[in-house]
Amino acid sequence: MKIGIVVFPGTNRERDMAQAFQVASGQAPEMLWHQQDNVDGFDLIVLPGGFSFGDYLRSGAMAAHSPIMRAVRQFAEKGGYVLGVCNGFQLLTEAQMLPGALLRNAGMRFLAQDCHLKVEGRDSVFTAGWKSGAVFRAPLAHGDGNYTASRDVLDRLEGEGRVAFRYCDAAGRVKDDDEHINMNGSARSIAGVLSENRRVCGLMPHPENLTEEILGGTDGLPLFSGILEALG
């Protein structure tokens, strides 16, 4: 399986992402520079976290217009798999490859702490590593993670089982108005969503930072092992 991780100026979690795939598969993904205009031959493209182009203007807004994003969009349109984490999720919404937008955190401060996520998405390689309804821990690290979309879009996402992950507490309880659970104030506690064909996934937290016991746990590993197993 051939995995490419896109690096923009200001990307900073590409090594974390590569390490997570390495732990899960024993194989290192390839780094792709943002000025490349071709992603042919890859099975999965990953847009990692960071501050692409400094997140100036809006998070992910400038990166969405990079040469490589034209190629990634075509790749997705042809049924390619794309995962965007944190800045990558912001970028996927800016590129309109996923619905909604990520606003400033409700508390107006950068959030860097662990949250819990409930796995809700169905029929997706990105949730295949967990049983539906499973709860896992993942670190958050973002200033703009407050997911928003129109009510119609939110209803549709929920109706089609395209809410991949939702913020919850350790026991799996979801409470939209509890700042300790839904820390960034996301609409309906949404932490991650899927595209219509379920092959593009964006999420704010960082499962890639919890893939080894020594680093605090392996809660994030099923994301990677699930993808690898499903895509062979």
Binding site: N12, Q19, L111, A112, Q113, N209
Partner: peptide
């Protein structure tokens, strides 16, 4: 001091063993 360090990304780099 959690209020402070919860605003600092302590895990980026993927090598932090004790936060």
């Amino acid at each position: 001091r959690a209020w402070i360090w919860n605003q600092y990304d302590s895990g980026v780099g993927g090598q932090t063993v004790k936060r």
